[in-house]
């Protein structure tokens, strides 16, 4: 179910003396099955943008099409939209309210008016998708660890079986392992279900490893929209808007500037390691050749 944004603007406090243009003429196409990173610093408009995608906020001007239908048209089923475009807010564990984990995950599907059997099935599948063990299902969500609570909250959205899953800063406040576990889990469920995933973050390091497209927001506009390595090439421009490329990118650039013959397109540790290894392999080969020539 592709989402298309056509010149969407959103102005906060339009009738006040200080209107704020949170989104400025944003046009985007989010086709099925992509893994997208939406990057921007606080106040860049990224959180406002994602709330438009499931109809929680209304565009001041412009139009949004879900599966070809204008979501603002009369008779458009907005409740259906919220189920199809699942949005997981920042610190989603703060929305948990039920006495046990399983009932909390059931909240979404229950609101969709499904049968008891279907609700239970979906909740179970969703909890499995986020990798929570059965032992926790009937515990109070408030007794779980921070990372586990977050999984439960994500499952609460997944249980509605969305076609698009948007996660706003899913790793905020987690420790490094917790962060990696959540991101790996998201990557896995992306792979298993094939749904579109939009990862909202202000950290390039976090998303570089996972996504196949990066949208950079700044001052309510789309600054870049491209493959990660293309975006990271603009590291100076990124810095100018308070963002940065992954640290690896900087190391590789520095190496190139020092005259190393390595590609500066590496964005993950693994790529950088391979790049450097290959470079040294070439060095060694060249030395052997030289020595061979001298010996001869």
């Amino acid at each position: 179910m592709p989402i298309i944004l056509d010149k969407v603007s959103h102005i906060y406090g339009e009738d006040t003396t200080m209107p704020v243009r949170a989104l400025d003429n944003v046009s985007l196409v989010l086709p099925d099955g992509q893994f997208i990173g939406l990057i921007g610093h606080t106040g860049s408009g990224k959180s406002t943008l994602v709330q438009h995608l499931n109809g929680l906020m209304k565009a001041t001007s412009g139009a949004i099409y879900f599966n070809g239908e204008d979501i603002d048209s009369d008779g458009f089923d907005r409740k259906m939209l919220r189920a199809r475009v699942g949005l997981v807010f920042q610190y989603p564990e703060h929305q948990l309210f039920e006495t046990d984990v399983f009932s909390d995950v059931c909240f979404g599907p229950k609101n969709l008016g499904l049968s008891k059997k279907e609700i239970d099935l979906r909740a179970y599948e969703a909890l499995k998708l986020v990798g929570l063990e059965d032992d926790y299902f009937y515990q109070s969500p408030f007794d779980l660890s921070g990372g586990q609570k977050r999984r439960v909250a994500i499952a609460g959205v997944l249980a509605m079986k969305p076609d698009v899953l948007i996660l706003d800063e899913p790793t905020a406040g987690l420790d490094p392992r917790g962060r990696d576990e959540i991101l790996d889990q998201i990557a896995r469920l992306k792979q298993e279900t094939g749904i579109t995933v939009v990862l909202v973050s202000h950290s390039m390091d976090d998303v570089a490893k996972y996504v196949d497209r990066i949208i950079v927001m700044n001052k309510g506009r789309v600054l870049y929209d491209d493959e990660p390595k293309e975006v990271f090439k603009r590291y100076r421009e990124l810095e100018a808007v308070g963002l940065a490329a992954p640290q690896v990118t900087y190391i590789m650039k520095a190496l190139r500037e020092k005259g190393y013959d390595v590609s500066d397109e590496a964005t993950t540790i693994g790529e950088a390691r391979e790049e450097i290894k290959n470079y040294f392999a070439r060095l060694v080969a060249a030395r052997k050749e030289r020595q061979g020539a001298e010996d001869a």
Partner: peptide
């Protein structure tokens, strides 16, 4: 890593090269 922590990327890269 065992302690659920991390190191800066540059430290990690150096470490991985060291292992190689």
């Amino acid at each position: 890593k065992e302690l659920r922590l991390d190191v800066p990327q540059v430290t990690l890269l150096a470490h991985e090269l060291r292992r190689e």
